[in-house]
């Protein structure tokens, strides 16, 4: 057991402060991740079983997803990786209810969304699933507070009052580090800031599950790392399960575990 980790690092890197700083950041991240990691008895939020999705391409049938099964627990961050065409986005669409599997079940918070009608699954998604896109997709003519509250506008039941909603949006904007930008329009923000705003939007209805499709794909490495740190904070604070689709091994490495898809199957 090393009682002086900092002394050890200084001894190791000497005057190479850049490497020293990098090593410190990595250790800090690992520490935060360890703090955020769910316990093994955390409830299962997402349970996907035997998912199959096939498409018709002319006369051919393409099996995009083949017998995929996995669980995601509350507070867990799972990276879904794989090469292009491996079925990552298809799985994400199935999990969100935007698409329907040919076979298999998806239970989110105990509800099998494959059994719900299109409108019901939309209402369920609104309440239980947060969505983060690669290109943010914020409303260009709404300021951040209004943008963050958009999903709350679609709530069917238990809609909070406008005041409550705005207060919640403001607190989320603060928690993603954009308090001073709350009344700015999206085009006045950097890419990283826009993605933070999009994450705040995904959290407005307090979902149990956040699905992020290449959330760092459009960001530089520094902003990408910042977003992953934010995801870690969120799952720790809100016990939200996060599933991130990514190509980036570094991003995948920040997750609790990685599900790799190859040719539509879990590798």
């Amino acid at each position: 057991m090393n009682n002086d980790p900092l002394g050890e690092l200084i001894a190791r890197y000497g005057n190479d402060f850049a490497r020293l700083e990098s090593e410190l950041a990595d250790r800090k991240r690992a520490y935060r991740s360890a703090l955020a990691a769910p316990t093994s008895n955390a409830p299962v939020v997402l349970e996907a079983r035997n998912l199959v999705k096939t498409y018709k391409s002319g006369k051919n049938r393409v099996e995009a997803v083949r017998n995929v099964s996995f669980d995601v627990r509350a507070g867990e961050m799972v990276a879904l990786t794989g090469p292009s065409g491996s079925g990552k986005s298809t799985v994400l669409n199935l999990l969100s209810g935007l698409d329907r599997p040919n076979n298999g079940t998806i239970h989110i918070d105990g509800t099998d969304i494959t059994k719900l009608s299109r409108n019901r699954v939309a209402a369920f998604r609104c309440r239980h699933i947060g969505f983060v896109f690669q290109f943010f997709y914020l409303q260009p003519f709404l300021n951040l507070v209004r943008n963050v509250t958009v999903p709350a506008m679609f709530l069917n039941h238990d809609q909070p009052s406008r005041k409550e909603r705005d207060e919640h949006a403001a607190s989320l904007i603060q928690s993603v580090g954009l308090a001073d930008r709350a009344l700015h329009l999206p085009n006045e923000l950097s890419g990283g800031q826009m993605q933070r705003a999009a994450i705040a939007r995904a959290l407005i209805n307090k979902p149990q599950l956040v699905l992020a499709d290449e959330p760092t794909g459009n960001l530089d490495s520094q902003n990408a790392q910042g977003i992953m740190d934010l995801f870690n904070d969120i799952r720790r604070e809100h016990q939200t399960a996060i599933m991130v689709v990514t190509h980036d091994p570094k991003i995948a490495g920040a997750a609790d575990r990685t599900i790799e898809l190859i040719d539509g199957q879990v590798a």
């Binding site: 299109r118 939309a122 209402a123 609104c126 699933i129 969505f131 958009v150 679609f154």
Partner: peptide, 16 residues
């Protein structure tokens, strides 16, 4: 189109 797609992804129903 993309906007309506986003709206639906974040929970908008047809009537919205």
């Amino acid at each position: 189109q993309r906007e309506t797609g986003v709206f639906r992804a974040i929970g908008a129903r047809n009537r919205n």
